[in-house]
Design a protein around this nucleic acid. Structure first.
Lengths: 215, 215
DNA sequence: GTCTATAAAGCGATAGAC
DNA sequence: GTCTATCGCTTTATAGAC
């Protein structure tokens, strides 16, 4: 069953609810979100939310899983690919910047949700394992460990723990999005200025990171 | 008026409420926290929370301001000090790691709170301005800009925007705490293992960052 | 599948005694 | 300052018509 929404596109109610719920959960936080507001945003009745997702918790799980599948696989695939180290760094940063440019509030949402609901951890793992079927976090770490060890033996980089490598890379790419409200204040930037800041960053970040690796 | 709490120490009720509220707000998120749970944790009646802070919003503001004053001034003072670049980097990282080691959940709390309540921004600025009376974010950025320009002219570092410098530094130091739940899963670490990971990081981070600056 | 109407519980907040 | 008791509203969730 479909309905026409305000964009003139047709989509079924379940998907409309998921989109609306995502928007409201991100803006208010899961605990602060109201089923009523979600129903209004989706253009359906409140009872329909329970028909499809049974409870607020069920809806929250569905939205979180959707967000995790949108963020995790792309990064893990880039990290686990068979590119050279330099290419991999550039690829991961480019991928992150592209995904996060389209969904800038995703990291903040996932971090907040995970902080207050540690039980969502399994959904993250699930999202990471799906898609290509390979590439969990630890597999990626051991692959990277071999790559970093080879490069170190070749004398092109300083020794580094692959886990530190991953966290450095994710930190530099994700933090500017997760901490955007804080950083806008500290740097005295408005929305436009911060956009320019991110664009400058996109061009310079790989260089900074690769220099950090050198011996 | 004082009361004996379970530690045998005396403290007045207002401070007991603040501590309990902080603990509950951090664990549940502000919207998810219940006044009842805070009162119980503080060992006082629910009505007393309203006597001292008038409303849940008032209590939330008080707790946020307290957290901001605990996190911001130390970092800004280190960033704005008159140390050399290398010393400054080491100092900021050491300061961050020390403060965050004692309050590991502070970054996550402040980021979540700020994401859902942009109006708290003023309190952050206030917290940053207080203490020594100097050193707001933008003042620090322009000071750093001069330092980085000098170093670049001396040929010791590559050119870099001071704002990128600050965000890189904060990202590398803060992200491992703010994203701890996510990273524990990705790296397959438990609480102890992550503690060791952070200790390793404390020793290596300044080196990585300083290499990234080099030309 | 989608709606209206309403139940049942929980919430922040206040009144008033001590 | 601190308590007990309770108000009034909001919230999630369900029942039942269509």
């Amino acid at each position: 069953m479909v309905e026409a929404n305000q964009n003139g596109t047709d989509r079924d109610a379940e998907e409309a609810i998921l989109e609306a719920a995502h928007e409201v959960f991100v803006r208010r936080g899961t605990a602060g979100a109201r089923m009523r507001e979600i129903a209004d945003a989706a253009g359906v009745n409140q009872a329909l939310l329970h028909y499809y997702f049974r409870s607020k918790e069920g809806l929250a799980r569905a939205v979180f899983g959707r967000a995790a599948r949108r963020l995790m696989p792309a990064v893990l695939r880039a990290l686990g690919s068979d590119l050279s180290l330099d290419e991999k760094v550039e690829r991961v940063i480019a991928t992150e910047m592209e995904v996060l440019g389209q969904h800038p509030y995703l990291p903040g949402y996932i971090l907040c949700e995970l902080a207050h609901h540690p039980e969502r951890a399994d959904q993250l793992v699930e999202a990471a394992l799906g898609e290509g079927g390979d590439a969990a976090g630890q597999a990626v770490v051991s692959l990277l460990g071999r790559q970093l060890e080879e490069a170190r033996e070749a004398g092109t980089i300083a020794p580094i723990d692959p886990r530190q490598f991953v966290v450095n890379l994710l930190a530099l790419a994700i933090f500017p999005f997760a901490a955007r409200p804080l950083l806008e204040i500290m740097l005295g930037l408005d929305e436009v200025g911060y956009g320019e800041f991110l664009e400058e960053r996109r061009q310079q970040l790989a260089g900074f990171f690769l220099r950090g690796l050198r011996s």
